[in-house]
């Protein structure tokens, strides 16, 4: 198949979101597939880091530092993707005893990242947990479907590979990957420009004022604004009769 017959990026994204079986086989061994997968992973990484940015703001990061810290988290998420692809690739080889091209695994796993593009929506007030749950389920399905159709694994193999891959990745994070994660977290702290002491679970303990008599400064913080008074509904009928009067 020539490259001209390949779907564009948006079409790829749409098909990946729908978990369309055809897209994985179509792009698996194409250069374009690598680009698309990379772009999806980057967008998903950015969306995820925005979704997790609450903690930065809780620590009162300045706007520029916020952007800097976000980009570091995005890089860290992309690194997580590489690690994930690597584990799936090695677990897959071990389990199926078949040689796989790493690049193909990386493309297929990258396409399965598509649902995480919506990770930003986890910020939605009150519905964040629900959205997180839906996205997790969707991503889980995506990786199983991608491994099944993209790499030709049996459904049970795909399920096993992704489950084992997840376990291995958790182990890696705590062992070999730990120094790299530490480095990224150190970088993020440096980028934030303020100590990131407050965690998300501390939010109920945070207080804006430590002094008991802080309210004595309220006077100084008051700012008066003059807004136009709210205009009540115009009485169109009166307007019309006035008009008629004037004509008469």
């Amino acid at each position: 198949m020539s490259d001209a017959a390949l779907p564009g990026f948006l079409e790829t994204l749409r098909l990946s979101l729908r978990l369309d079986p055809s897209i994985y086989g179509l792009l698996r061994d194409k250069t374009q597939g690598v680009y698309y997968a990379a772009l999806i992973v980057l967008l998903a990484g950015l969306s995820e880091s925005l979704g997790q940015s609450v903690v930065l703001l809780l620590n009162r990061v300045r706007p520029r530092r916020f952007v800097l810290a976000l980009s570091i988290t995005t890089v860290s998420n992309v690194f997580g993707y590489l690690l994930w692809s690597l584990t799936i690739w090695s677990v897959g080889i071990l389990l199926t005893q078949k040689e796989q091209d790493f690049r193909e695994v990386a493309v297929v796993v990258g396409l399965a990242y598509a649902p995480q593009i919506f990770a930003f929506f986890e910020l939605t007030p009150y519905l964040g947990n629900l959205i997180w749950g839906v996205l997790s389920l969707w991503s889980m399905l995506a990786i199983v479907v991608a491994l099944h159709y993209g790499l030709g694994l049996e459904p049970w193999q795909a399920l096993l590979v992704s489950a084992l891959g997840w376990v291995v990745m958790q182990a890696l994070r705590r062992t070999v990957g730990w120094p790299i994660l530490r480095l990224l977290s150190w970088l993020q702290h440096r980028a934030a420009g303020v100590p990131l002491t407050a965690r998300l679970e501390d939010v109920a303990r945070l207080r804006r004022h430590t002094l008991r008599n802080w309210y004595e400064q309220l006077e100084a913080r008051r700012r008066s604004v003059r807004l136009p008074p709210v205009r009540k509904k115009r009485r169109r009928m009166d307007g019309q009769t006035n008009h008629v009067h004037r004509l008469e």
Partner: peptide
């Protein structure tokens, strides 16, 4: 909806100043 919390969080981070407004 996802953008709305930034109003609250940005206020907390001090991005929008410290003032309390009232309409004179």
């Amino acid at each position: 909806a996802s953008l709305t919390p930034f109003e609250t969080l940005g206020w907390w981070a001090g991005w929008f100043g410290n003032a309390i407004y009232h309409d004179v």
